[in-house]
Design a protein around this nucleic acid. Structure first.
Lengths: 337, 337
DNA sequence: CTGAAAGCGCTAACAC
DNA sequence: GTGTTAGCGCTTTCAG
């Protein structure tokens, strides 16, 4: 069928071992034979078969990335960071979007095992016991990205969500707001749910501002629609608020869009701060002030960690990345000068 | 190291051939041995090694997808369609984003060859001769997605861009607009550039509306920023226009955002129609009327085509998908009743 | 029904 | 420096 190392060996009048050596830069051949072989390779258009290689080396130069919903715009930057870096390591990535479905996730894990991937990046979702045990048996490195596990010893890279939420709230407070509401996504979300609420609450208390259950409303998720319904709910509970902290940019856009329809002007009458710093944050009207995470870099680092663990056969430390407040136009300063 | 078919065979007191047969449902074993073997597999937690399989079968159950920029939100839906479908076929996808860089693309092609992928989906970019020749030598199926080639016989799936642009323009015209401008992306883009301009021009002529060079401005790309600068340019050339056809949703958002800053109200004073129907189209203010493509389905179909070609060892026909006008709120009807 | 053995394309001892 | 050979984990003849 396809042309193999044997064909090259034959045509170059050397053994396949020699060809292999030249291909892999292992010592044991003369400059002259190298030239000949290289020429033959060129002529024949030979390309090594990495499947055969993988079988021997126990290394496939492939990693698997599990994502909940690829549609979430958040994932774009993360994947880019992962893919670029993986490519620099001479490897490639198999993407698996699990839709946050346990069964599907296990299927993918199975697949990745059979494909003998060198490592796994597990993204933005809770690491269930079942998953952990499976990967542990696979005996390959795994790192958590934009999520973390409190029960299993798996290194992660993420931002400190509670801290970031604190900063966002504090930003609102420092801009003079006193009655501040929050629209959260799914409360049960161990990473993006409660921690962000806690950060919000803590900031309010630190600045001795009133908070009650009425100040935060939890929706089903972090989408535009959740922002729409969340805003309606929050308005009933906290009609005199002047600012809202949204647990995601999509929620923030839902708020802005709904406010617009209700003739509430942002930021003149209502300030909004988001979370994520998606591309759309700068395309909204007004451009959205939000909490930014270095997503690309985080993807990059997670990838590096996987490869490092693969090489060293041991775990590495987790990384907490810094967040930042990206100031745009959706928050008004209301301090009385 | 890991547990292999041999271990299973030994523990079950059968030959590896028998285990293999059971694993692959090939005739030649009794119900009884099957039971035993299955039980041993369970106990040992055995998983077949698809690398070894691929070496023999010349089939890796992996396809490669080449994308220009994964960041473009357009890609999300497409990838989802591809990945979901690929998974249903029991295969997985390796994503490669080429950044539209020829050298990088060749590198990836090389990689995909070495990894012995079963097929390739080439997305949203011009298929250069070099690429075509390489894949031809690889002798695996390839299909073009959201692009097409006029010079090489590669099946494609896309929308008719010229036709879609015609529809969009016609929609504006039927809503009573007469002075209509267009902001195009890179004119040289063989797929999303000139064809859309042609569609625009043709519609204007069909309805006997005036058009000149002043009516269309070409930017460097299809981004938000291109929309911003494009709008400024177009305004100078065609100050009395009442509607704009934008060659992408991002361009449309750039227009809307700039118009907002200039106190031009959309759609009251200026109507805008986009192209792509991205998620953000419904999150903008006002929600964007745009040309929709069934991206998910297109990804799905392209994938099916690759597998069909792989099975049948022959090419398949191309598919033109229907587009639609997604009516939202950014176009105003200005017909005098 | 079942096993022995060859071999997929390549690497890694081990000889010469 | 270079060739020979034994596998990597699996499928697939071919005997029995």
């Amino acid at each position: 069928m396809s042309i193999t190392i044997k064909d090259v060996a034959k045509k170059a009048n050397v053994s396949i071992a020699t060809v292999s050596r030249i291909l892999n830069n292992k010592p044991g051949y003369s400059k002259k034979t190298e030239e000949i072989v290289l020429k033959v390779i060129e002529e024949l258009g030979y390309h090594p078969n990495s499947i055969a290689r993988g079988l021997i080396n126990k290394r496939t130069h492939t990693i698997g990335v599990l994502l909940p919903k690829i549609s979430s715009m958040l994932m774009n930057e993360i994947i880019r960071g992962i893919e670029d870096t993986t490519h620099q390591y001479g490897s490639s990535v198999i993407v698996c979007h699990t839709e946050s479905n346990g069964q599907k996730t296990m299927q993918y894990l199975q697949l990745l095992h059979e494909k003998q991937v060198d490592g796994i990046i597990f993204t933005s979702e809770t690491l269930k016991e079942e998953y952990y045990q499976f990967v542990k048996k696979m005996n390959i490195p795994m790192v958590l990205l934009s999520t973390e596990s409190y029960t299993f010893p798996v290194p992660f890279v993420k931002v400190n969500d509670k801290h970031a939420a604190y900063s966002a709230t504090e930003y609102l407070i420092k801009n003079g707001h006193k009655t501040i509401g929050m629209i959260s996504g799914k409360k049960e979300d161990l990473v993006a749910g409660q921690p962000r609420i806690d950060g919000f609450l803590q900031a309010m208390k630190a600045y001795e501002l009133p908070v009650s259950d009425n100040h935060v409303v939890c929706e089903d998720g972090f989408s535009f629609e959740d922002g729409v319904s969340g805003f309606h709910n929050l308005q009933k509970q906290l009609p005199d608020m002047t600012a809202i902290f949204a647990a995601s940019d999509e929620i923030a856009l839902g708020i802005i869009s709904t406010a617009y329809q209700m003739n509430i002007r942002v930021p003149e009458q209502l300030s909004v701060i988001g979370y994520d710093n998606l591309t759309i944050a700068e395309m909204s009207i007004p451009p959205l002030t939000t909490v930014g995470q270095p997503l690309y870099e985080m993807g990059e680092k997670a990838t590096e960690m996987v490869f490092e663990m693969f090489e060293k056969k041991q775990t590495v430390e987790s990384r907490i990345f810094p967040h930042e407040i990206v100031e745009r136009k959706s928050v008004k300063n209301v301090t009385k000068a």
